[in-house]
Computed example of a mutant assay.
Amino acid sequence: MKKILFFGILACILAFNACKKSSDDQGGDTEEPVKIDTVYLNDRVALASKVKVAFGISTPGMIPAATTASGTPVLVENKNIVDAISGRYIVIKPNFSYYESTIKGYYVSIVGSSVHFEVDYSNGRGFYRQAPQVQNSLFREGDYVDSSIIVKLPKYIVGDTLSLSYAAYDSLGHISNKVLAHVRIHSQNGIADYQDFVGSWKVNRKTDANGVWQNYYVPDTSRTHFACESGKVQYCLNNQQSCFEGIAAITAVTKYDLMFTDQNEYSELFSATLSRVVMDNSTCDKLNYGTQTVSKLEKGGWSFNPETKIMTIVVDNNGIEYDNFYSYQVKILEMTPQLVTLVRLDNTSYTVELVKK
Rank of each mutant, 00 (worst) to 15 (best):
L5K: 04
F7S: 13
G8S: 08
I9M: 08
F16H: 06
N17C: 03
A18E: 14
S23E: 14
G28V: 00
E32Y: 04
P33A: 04
V34I: 12
D37F: 00
A46H: 05
S58H: 00
T59C: 04
G61I: 02
I63Y: 10
I63V: 13
P64E: 10
P64Y: 09
T68H: 02
G71Y: 03
G71L: 05
K79Q: 13
K79V: 12
I81R: 12
I81D: 13
D83H: 10
I85C: 11
Y89C: 04
Y89F: 14
Y89I: 02
V91R: 02
N95D: 12
Y98V: 07
K104C: 12
V108P: 05
V111N: 06
S114Y: 03
V115M: 00
V115S: 09
V115H: 04
H116D: 06
D120W: 00
S122N: 15
S122W: 02
N123M: 08
V134S: 12
N136F: 07
S137I: 13
L138D: 15
R140D: 11
G142P: 03
G142I: 03
G142D: 07
D143Y: 02
I149C: 06
I150G: 03
V151I: 15
Y156V: 04
V158Q: 07
S163I: 02
L164F: 14
S176E: 04
L180N: 12
S187N: 08
S200Y: 01
W201G: 11
R205E: 15
K206P: 00
T207D: 11
G211Y: 05
Q214N: 09
Y216S: 04
Y216M: 03
P219K: 06
D220N: 13
S222H: 01
T224D: 12
T224H: 03
H225P: 00
F226N: 02
N238C: 06
Q240G: 15
S242N: 10
E245A: 15
G246K: 00
A248N: 10
A252K: 12
A252P: 01
T254K: 09
Y256I: 01
D257P: 00
L258Y: 09
M259Y: 10
Y266G: 07
F270A: 03
T273S: 13
V278F: 03
M279H: 03
D280R: 02
Y289S: 12
L297H: 08
T308Y: 00
I310D: 14
M311P: 04
V314D: 14
D316L: 01
N317L: 02
K331C: 01
V340A: 07
L342C: 13
V343A: 11
L345M: 15
D346C: 01
K356H: 09
K357T: 06
